[in-house]
Amino acid sequence: MNQFAADNDISGRADLTVVLRRFYTAAFADRRIGPFFTEIAGTDLEVHLPRITDFWERALFRTAGYGRDAFGPHAALHAARAMTAEDFGRWVQLWNAAVDGLHRGPNAERAKATGERIALALHQRLAGADPALLLRPGSQGFVPLAALELRTTA
C-alpha cells in the first residue's frame, strides 16, 4: 500500500477523474478487455472521461449529473463480441487496482463494491447468467476478488 492511499479517501469529482484515467489507461492496454474499448467501441478517452466521471459521481455521491443509458453501450459491445464472466472479472480487477493504488476509506470501498455489483448486474443482464453461479468458487464464471493477481502481495 502506498502512503498516499493510506489516508486519502475519494472525496469528489477530481479524485474520481484521476482514478478513472488510471483505470482506463490500464484497461485500454489490457490484452483481455482492451479491445472492447479500443477496437470495438473506438473509445475516445477525452470524450468518455467526463461522461463516466458523471456516472461515478452520481453512483458514489448521489449527484444528479448523469442521465444517460448505461446499459445500451454495453449491450452494443456484447452484440459485437460477447463479454464473458472473465472479461467482467478482469474489469473488476483493474478497477479495484486503480482505486486501491490511490485511495483508502469508505468511499473507496464503496467504489469497489459498486464496481463489482455493476459488473455482476451487467453480466447477468447480457448473458442471462445466474449471479450465484458467477460467484461460486471453482466455477468458470466471475473471477472472485480473493483470486486476483493484482491484489496479492509478494
Rank of each mutant, 00 (worst) to 15 (best):
A82G: 14
P131A: 10
A64W: 00
R81Q: 09
T25E: 15
G72D: 08
T63G: 07
F142N: 04
T25Y: 01
Y66D: 08
D44H: 12
D87V: 14
A146F: 04
N2A: 05
I10T: 01
L60H: 00
A75M: 15
R110P: 05
L135W: 04
S139A: 08
H123P: 15
D7E: 09
A5Q: 07
A129Q: 05
G72T: 15
H103C: 07
F61L: 06
R21Q: 00
A146E: 06
M83E: 05
V47Q: 07
E116V: 10
G65N: 11
A6W: 01
F36V: 14
A79N: 02
A29V: 12
D9Q: 11
H123K: 12
D100S: 08
R110T: 06
A59S: 08
E109Q: 15
G138M: 02
D87S: 07
R58H: 08
F23L: 02
E149N: 10
G138Y: 06
T153R: 03
R22F: 08
F23Y: 04
R62E: 03
G12N: 00
G101H: 13
V47R: 08
Q124H: 03
T84A: 10
P73W: 02
D15C: 02
R136S: 06
T84D: 10
N107E: 02
L134R: 11
L94I: 09
A111W: 00
A26C: 09
I118T: 03
R51V: 09
A14M: 10
G34V: 05
G72N: 05
Q124D: 09
A14K: 01
D44G: 14
F61M: 03
A113G: 13
G34S: 04
F37L: 06
V19A: 03
A70R: 03
V47N: 07
D100Q: 03
F4V: 13
R104S: 08
L45K: 07
D7Y: 06
V18G: 01
L77W: 06
T43G: 11
A121R: 03
E39D: 12
R110I: 01
G34A: 13
D9S: 11
L49D: 02
L94V: 12
R104F: 15
D130C: 05
F71L: 07
A59D: 05
G67Y: 06
A129C: 09
Q3G: 15
T43I: 07
V92C: 15
R90H: 05
V143W: 14
Y24P: 03
T38M: 14
L135N: 12
R90I: 07
L133E: 04
F23Q: 01
R136N: 06
R151Q: 14
D69V: 05
A29P: 10
T84F: 00
A154L: 08
H103P: 04
R68H: 11
W56T: 03
T153C: 12
R136L: 12
T25L: 07
E46T: 12
Q93S: 10
A146H: 09
T114M: 12
W95S: 02
